[in-house]
């Protein structure tokens, strides 16, 4: 099939302001949007810049706005979008070039929630035992690949990148509800700050945007509940 792909372009060294460029391509309905971008870069315009790495929905490098929705280009199939496809960078982060955005504010927020295992007890001889039931409690939020599709779909994050954002809260949830972890109180204090969970207004954009289908709004709700009750069940 013939596909028209309209791509957001911006080179700060040459362009005064961003613009769109349109390319005509021959594609299979089962091609991915990433394949189209590779074709543009390989055969039409080598200056097109975008991030990609594994190309299989695991590394989270190629989150972008495709026909207005945040998607991973490597998981977005042409037949889901039709013959006219518009590709733009994710919102709320500064565009460095074309589809590449500055991810630093996103990772700053990620680091704020102490996204690592905290347990000051001496390491046991064999393992820090965790039952299957306890592991299941936070299974959903272990799936985050830090692609930023959720955070950059959130109106509160568009308003201010000081808001921790859905992804950081998801990663806090992953450790807060881990039965082996001892840093829940520290993380809940961070969640309780003015730019923490209070800025979430349950818009559900994050849940819709997540390419890993994490129930993000539910996870944020569970963190809010833990803040109110103190229970980590």
């Amino acid at each position: 099939m013939q596909v028209t792909i309209k791509v957001f372009r911006y080179n700060p060294e040459k362009d005064k302001k961003p613009h769109y460029e349109t390319y005509q391509l021959e594609a299979d309905p089962t091609d991915r949007v990433l394949d189209l971008l590779e074709k543009v870069k390989g055969y039409k315009d080598g200056t097109l810049s975008f991030r990609r790495s594994c190309a299989h929905g695991v590394c989270g490098s190629d989150a972008m706005r495709i026909n207005g929705s945040n998607k991973l280009a490597c998981k977005a199939l042409v037949h889901d979008f039709g013959a006219k496809i518009t590709v733009e960078p994710i919102l709320g982060l500064r565009v460095i070039k074309d589809l590449i955005v500055d991810m630093e504010p996103f990772f700053d927020n990620f680091r704020k929630v102490l996204p690592y295992f905290i347990n000051d007890d001496p390491a046991p001889e064999k393992e820090r035992y965790q039952s299957q039931e306890d592991r299941e409690r936070f299974d959903d939020t272990t799936k985050c690949i830090l692609c930023a599709a959720c955070t950059t779909s959130c109106p509160s994050f568009w308003a201010s990148d000081e808001y921790l954002g859905p992804s950081a809260i998801v990663n806090a949830h992953r450790f807060i509800f881990d039965s082996r972890d001892q840093g829940a109180a520290q993380r809940l204090k961070i969640m309780n700050e003015i730019m923490g969970v209070s800025r979430c207004h349950t818009v559900f954009n994050c849940t819709l945007a997540c390419p890993r289908e994490i129930q993000i709004t539910k996870a944020i709700g569970e963190v809010k509940k833990a803040l109110m009750t103190g229970s980590l069940e």
Binding site: S179, I194, S198
Partner: peptide, 22 residues
């Protein structure tokens, strides 16, 4: 599953939380 709770003193209780509940 063993019970895990974080006391109010440890998790903090501020204006944001108060108004969220209110």
């Amino acid at each position: 599953m063993k019970s895990r709770t974080v006391s109010m003193a440890k998790r903090g209780f501020n204006f944001e939380t108060t108004m969220w509940i209110f």
